[in-house]
């Protein structure tokens, strides 16, 4: 992030294109009400950036509920069945062995392994699914060009609107974002073409 020059005019050899606009807020409450306005304006390719989870921001941004629970449930159910099948095959089919007089396939003895595999599958699905649904990991992001954006990990809140949004128009979008902010200027983010 550091070492990237933010002023487009200084490097004239490389052609630049507008990535989007960034505006800064001083507290979460301002961010939430600003997010509501961007949402209502109908933008799709935009994001809000905060140093910590902000309650109610999902609604303010108009985000749809995550699909992750279904993924996790499916993975958990799979893990459950895999655990049972694994023990059935190994204990009752492939290598029958009498252990303390119990039946070859006895459910109470199989529950711990089944339970653990259910957890393992769901936890892995939750972690991997979270990454995939969030488009992570991202090695490059247009906002890396902004120097003041570094404060998003400490004490500042931001909203960015990308130029690839169908509704994006340089003048109008900039005007909208200027009307949102708490006095901080709207920063144009340029990236190399």
């Amino acid at each position: 992030m550091s070492g990237v020059d933010t002023t487009p005019a200084t490097i004239e050899e490389v052609p630049k294109k507008l990535w989007g606009y960034l505006v800064e807020f001083e507290d979460a409450a301002e961010l939430v009400s600003a997010a509501e306005r961007v949402r209502d304006a109908g933008y799709k390719n935009w994001d809000a950036h905060t140093p910590f989870p902000v309650h109610g921001l999902n609604d303010a941004m108009g985000l749809r509920p995550t699909r992750l629970p279904f993924l996790v449930f499916g993975a958990g159910a799979t893990g459950c069945l895999v655990g049972l099948a694994l023990q059935f095959f190994t204990n009752a089919v492939d290598y029958k062995y009498i252990i303390s007089g119990k039946p070859f396939f006895s459910l109470p003895a199989n529950i711990p392994v089944t339970f653990e595999l259910t957890i393992l599958f769901s936890a892995t699905a939750a972690f991997a699914g979270m990454l995939v649904l969030n488009n992570l990991p991202q090695w490059y992001h247009g906002l890396f060009h902004s120097r003041r954006f570094a404060r998003v990990t400490a004490d500042r809140f931001f909203i960015s609107i990308e130029s690839r949004d169908p509704l994006f128009e340089e003048q109008r979008t900039k005007a909208l974002m200027e009307s949102l902010g708490s006095g901080g200027e709207v920063e144009a983010i340029w990236e190399e073409e």
Binding site: S100, G101, K102, P108, A109, I111, P112
Partner: peptide, 12 residues
């Protein structure tokens, strides 16, 4: 409940 049951069931 299962922890209680399984240990008793297994030890028999």
């Amino acid at each position: 409940a299962f922890s209680q049951y399984m240990l008793i069931w297994y030890a028999n």
